[in-house]
Amino acid sequence: MSDTHTQENTHEDGHSEDPSRRDFIYIATGAAAAVGAGSVAWPLVSQMGAAADTRAAGSIEIDISKVAEGQQIKALWRGKPVFVRHRTAAEIAAAEADDAADLIDPQADADRFVPTPEGNINPAILVMVGVCTHFGCIPVGEAGDFNGWYCPCHGSHYDTSGRIRKGPAPKNLEIPTYSYVSDSVIKVG
């Protein structure tokens, strides 16, 4: 670069250019090249994100009236299992009593529900994404130190509200976006 500089300064026809103007041209060229390269790189990088059809995989409806008390069903939503558990009175009581306990990811049991068409909370039907917040394994129901869920992969214990209580997982089991279509049908997604 410095070589060309000296050469150009002693150009044969004698008229010398303003060095700062030439620097500007080099910088502008370099910047334009960088912008161009970046623009080409962007689609190459972003193509790896979820494709339109994957994102559109959308929502499912689940009939919760078929889930008997003390039972749980799994439904597949966006490639992940959704747990719908019909909790027993004892489980609800245990979950609500633990609202005051020392929680890793504090959340009241009542905050883990969406309102029914009547506008109140149905604490019997717990809807969660059945994926451990540690590394994504599927926790086993009615197991663990808190009789909620237990993840066999690395030993995370969840309570009857699906809140993390012990083990390496950082967060409570996720509540998906869902709503009540009617008293007996929910729509997830």
Binding site: Q72, I73, V140
Partner: peptide, 16 residues
């Protein structure tokens, strides 16, 4: 499908 789903949860109960 429904019987299957309930059977699945039944299996878990049985295991426990």
């Amino acid at each position: 499908a429904l019987i299957g789903l309930s059977g699945l949860s039944l299996g878990t109960v049985a295991m426990a």
